[in-house]
Amino acid sequence: MANTPGSKKAVRKIARRTAINTARRSRVRTFLRKFDEALSAGDAAAAKDAFVKAQSELMRAVTKGVVHKNTGSRKVSRLHAQLKKMAAA
């Protein structure tokens, strides 16, 4: 339990930051889900558009510190590979 005023303030700050990070992570997952749906539907144009949005959102999460840089890059790379595979088929 927080006793000092500084630790009480830290608890409040952490709670605010956790809420923001949770919302950002949820937003990233939403864009990833939209990409998967476009991919499974077989719509190349929608998949490309969803990929651009998902990539942008992932990299934004990286800059905000929600996702590690390597994790973001790995996910974008895998999404792009899926998009290329769909385009080739």
Rank of each mutant, 00 (worst) to 15 (best):
F51I: 10
L39A: 04
A45F: 00
K34S: 11
R17Q: 15
I14M: 11
R12V: 04
P5F: 06
R27G: 12
L39M: 07
K48N: 09
V62I: 07
G6M: 00
M1P: 02
A46D: 13
L39G: 04
N70I: 01
N3K: 13
K69W: 05
G72V: 01
R24M: 14
A45M: 01
S7G: 00
K64H: 03
S26Q: 08
R27E: 13
V28I: 06
T18V: 08
L39K: 14
Q55Y: 01
V11C: 05
I20G: 06
T4D: 03
G65H: 08
T71F: 05
T4C: 03
K8G: 11
K75T: 14
A41V: 05
A38D: 06
H68Q: 11
L58D: 09
A38P: 04
M1V: 00
R27P: 01
M86G: 13
N21I: 01
A44P: 04
K9L: 02
D49A: 09
A2D: 08
K48G: 08
K75P: 10
S73P: 01
R60H: 13
L83E: 03
T30Y: 09
R33P: 01
K69I: 10
A81R: 14
E57G: 03
S26P: 10
D49Q: 12
K53C: 09
G65Y: 12
R74E: 10
T30P: 02
R24E: 10
D49T: 06
R25G: 03
H80S: 15
V67M: 15
T63H: 07
T71W: 14
S77A: 15
K9M: 05
A15V: 00
M59P: 07
G6Q: 11
L32R: 15
A61H: 02
G72N: 01
T4K: 12
M1F: 07
I14V: 09
R74Q: 14
K64S: 02
R33W: 01
A89E: 13
S77H: 05
K53S: 02
V11F: 00
H80D: 15
T22Y: 00
R17C: 00
N21M: 03
V76D: 06
S77T: 10
K34Y: 13
G42Q: 13
H80K: 13
A41H: 14
A54T: 00
I14T: 11
A47S: 10
S7F: 05
A15L: 02
A50Y: 08
M86H: 12
A50N: 11
T18D: 03
